[in-house]
């Protein structure tokens, strides 16, 4: 099969690149578009460091052949603070010291973004489930789970104060 042009909306920008059949979304993001926040950890779906959002859902970008999502909307960590302002999840990670070496952090934050969009007030069990596909070998997970619960509270309060709907995606719809 021949290579084909892939068109994606990445972090609100229309992007195109040429990909050989079987090219992963992760490879497209990192190697063709230069977006290196999503990490290539195990490259076999085991570690979650490559997590990005495709049409709002958290996916393992290392396992997704990019030609199967041609036309999709993709959000990576680069798109979370596109205006230079950290969002609630990033701020909560920073304030709660929920990183150490930092390699898992982009995937953790994207998994958390997907969770908070479908559930603005998650309990600890729901947080654990949301990041159960993301490995962290430094922190023991507790600071990360605390940060996500804290981020949810910050976002609920900020959106309530602004009179916005609880879910970011409801604004778009």
């Amino acid at each position: 099969m021949a290579s084909q042009v892939i068109a994606l909306v990445v972090n609100d920008e229309e992007r195109e690149f040429i990909a050989k059949p079987g090219t992963s979304l992760l490879s497209g993001l990192r190697d063709s578009l230069g977006l290196t926040a999503a990490k290539r950890g195990c490259a076999q779906g085991g570690c979650g460091a490559c997590t990005v959002l495709v049409d709002g859902k958290a996916v393992l970008s290392c396992l997704l052949a990019v030609e199967t999502i041609n036309g999709a909307t993709v959000r990576t960590l680069e798109g979370v603070a596109a205006d230079g302002q950290l969002d609630e999840v990033q701020s909560a990670f920073l304030d709660g010291f929920a990183t150490q070496c930092g390699f898992c952090t982009p995937g953790m934050i994207m998994a958390a973004e997907a969770l908070l969009d479908r559930n603005p007030d998650p309990g600890e069990d729901e947080v654990a489930e949301a990041i159960s596909g993301n490995h962290c070998r430094c922190t023991g997970y507790r600071p990360i789970m605390n940060a996500i619960v804290d981020a949810a509270r910050r976002r609920r309060e900020a959106r309530a104060a602004a009179g916005a709907p609880a879910r970011v995606s409801e604004e778009v719809a």
Binding site: D125, V127, A128, E129, I131, S132, H135, G140, Y141, R142, I144, M145
Partner: peptide
């Protein structure tokens, strides 16, 4: 994983 962690 995150569901297996103890209180520390």
């Amino acid at each position: 994983g995150p569901a297996d962690i103890p209180v520390q």
